[in-house]
Design a protein around this nucleic acid. Structure first.
Length: 542
DNA sequence: AGTTACGGCCCGAACTATCG
DNA sequence: CGATAGTTCGGGCCGTAACT
């Protein structure tokens, strides 16, 4: 409607009269306004384009709007007419923008030259040299599942890929060689329920298997390498026509320069894939940069992030890019916030896809860590149920966890490292001191931060009776079938109840309360086992 | 003329900052 | 530290350009 107003206002003007308007910015570059831009550039005289950016109004109700201040005169522009550009979008509020408009540096460009821009996009910045990227590569849209709740899971929600499921690239949160590898899709070879789903859109699958650069369309367009995986709607996959160009293409797409170029053409929050084909690409220049940055070629797939399917599975192992040798290398032993989570998941019998899928393409250094995980397999619990207090004579979870960590760290293991891990996992008070010990972490903190780390799709669950000194277990939900639920109720909880009974008989303080809480929990678990409404949750889920 | 899929809008969940 | 308000962004939906 803003462009219609502008058009009407120009029509109201007598020849040479000027319209000045504050309006939304999008029509300056969106493809659907291409014809309007062409007409206004050819028939009217552009005086001023000032980018105001976000927050151009005092009112917070319009905070999200991206605006421009425009001046156009109703007359045909003479040959060589200069249009003036200002950019105050960096100023955060209306007052700052108003001040900046008076003294910001003005860029003047020939109006006629705007007709040479791709899609007649209006822009006053310097043009980058190079051919459009479209000459060297295609930018392609990914699959839109139409119902991701149904068709898309995180890989850790499945013990191993079931028939019909494939791994799928999703948008990365930051630019790095290998990221955005969390999702699996129920694709069924494109012939099953997904293909029937209204709203689903299967796109560009003939390009699967080709290497490229996967770009997330949002905000600062982070990039990641694709080794030929499928990809989703929020990414665009840029696939070079000549595979040899991949590494210059990657060097460009992962640079700040790339973001600048894309944003010069399109300032929308979410950029459409076609925009990437329009930006200039200087192949020779970026090949030189790539030869410096990657003299031995691009690194093979690797990741230290347990939310990536490429993760090697080792609690403290690390593979890093060595800037000295320009090659992958074993990094320092990790002590970040994910170490405890990986160790606990391993103890409950979970293994990462890279461990069980021997066909997965993986860097040699990452494969070594996968192999070193074998030494940790004996620490895995047999039924995926581990008591925080000792149950069934299995020992306390905290002791079993320390044993696993000691094996993983070897000589580097110490109580100091344990405290460092707790601190890294966020188990601290405001003053930076620890909130408690490792057992406290397991009881009070682990499940919440496990859920947060794994995108609110936890696969290790905590089951407890609500008492700080009560029955509490962690369990691996991949192993929780009916048999194991029975075992949980009658062996683990049953044993705990027997123990509380004898403590009651011996008049141990608190035993009475613990027994009551445990019996209550047992009653509720049995109802789930029976599966009568509303306790049929287990039946519906398994 | 019918079909496909690109491009962009916009809802609402999730996240972040601020306040009491 | 928890509640609340403000902000960001993933992704479903749909119009329409492009293609067959």
């Amino acid at each position: 409607i803003a462009t219609v107003f502008l058009d009407r206002c120009l029509a109201f003007c007598r020849t040479g009269g000027t319209v000045s308007a504050v309006m939304p910015q999008n029509w300056l570059f969106l493809k659907s306004y291409m014809k309007l831009r062409e007409r206004l550039l050819k028939q009217e005289q552009w005086e001023l384009v000032a980018r105001l950016g976000e927050g151009g109004f005092h009112s917070s109700a319009a905070a999200g709007a991206f605006t421009i201040l425009l001046g156009i005169s109703h007359t045909r522009a003479p040959e060589g007419h200069l249009l003036c550009g200002l950019d105050v979008s960096e100023e955060r509020d209306a007052t700052g923008k108003a001040r900046s408009l008076l003294d910001a540096e003005m860029t003047c460009v020939e109006q006629g030259r705007q007709l040479e821009n791709p899609d007649y996009i209006i822009g006053v910045d310097q043009n980058e040299s190079g051919e459009p990227l479209a000459i060297y590569a295609k930018s392609l849209a990914g699959i839109d599942s139409g119902d991701s709740q149904r068709f898309r899971f995180k890989f850790w929600e499945m013990d191993s890929l079931l028939k019909g499921w494939i791994r799928q690239l999703n948008s990365a949160t930051q630019t790095m060689e290998y990221s955005g590898r969390e999702h699996i899709l129920f694709f069924e070879d494109g012939k099953g329920a997904l293909s029937q789903c209204p709203g689903a859109s299967i796109r560009n699958i003939k390009y699967w298997g080709k290497q490229g650069v996967s770009i997330s369309r949002m905000r600062n367009i982070p990039a990641s390498l694709s080794i030929g995986e499928s990809w989703d709607r929020n990414c665009a996959c840029i696939i070079p026509k000549n595979n040899n160009d991949l590494y210059s293409l990657w060097t460009y797409c992962s640079s700040q320069n790339f973001i600048t170029q894309v944003r010069r053409l399109n300032q929308k929050l979410s950029v459409s894939e076609a925009t990437f084909e329009n930006i200039p690409f200087d192949l020779d220049h970026w090949t030189k940069v790539a030869e410096e940055q990657y003299p031995h070629g691009l690194p093979d797939p690797y990741s230290d992030d347990p939310t990536q399917w490429l993760f090697h599975g080792h609690p403290c192992g690390s593979v890093i890019w060595d800037e000295e040798t320009k090659q992958l290398a074993h990094g320092p032993i990790r002590t970040d916030g994910t170490v405890l989570h990986v160790a606990i998941a391993r103890l409950l019998g979970y293994r990462w896809p890279a461990e069980t899928d021997s066909g997965m393409e993986l860097a040699a250094e990452a494969r070594e860590w996968v192999q070193r995980c074998d030494a940790l397999l004996p620490f895995a619990d047999d039924d995926g149920i581990a008591g925080i207090p000792s149950l069934r004579g299995e020992g306390r979870l905290v002791d079993r966890l320390r044993a696993l960590l000691a094996a993983a760290y070897g000589t580097a293991w110490s109580p100091d490292v344990e405290n460092e891990l707790l601190r890294a996992a966020g188990y601290t008070k405001n003053d930076g001191r620890l909130r408690g010990d490792l057992e406290g972490f397991l009881r009070d903190e682990f499940f919440a931060s496990h859920s947060q780390l794994f995108h609110h799709r936890p696969f290790i669950w905590q089951l407890w009776d609500g008492r700080a000194d009560g029955f509490s277990v962690l369990l691996n939900y991949h192993k929780l079938d009916r048999r194991n639920l029975e075992r949980l109720i009658y062996t683990y909880l049953g044993g705990w109840i027997t123990q509380q009974r004898s403590e009651v008989a011996a008049a141990t303080p608190g035993a009475e309360e613990r027994l009551v809480a445990a019996l209550d929990l047992k009653g509720r678990l049995e109802k789930i086992l029976e599966g009568e409404k509303p306790y049929d949750i287990f039946i519906r889920w398994k």
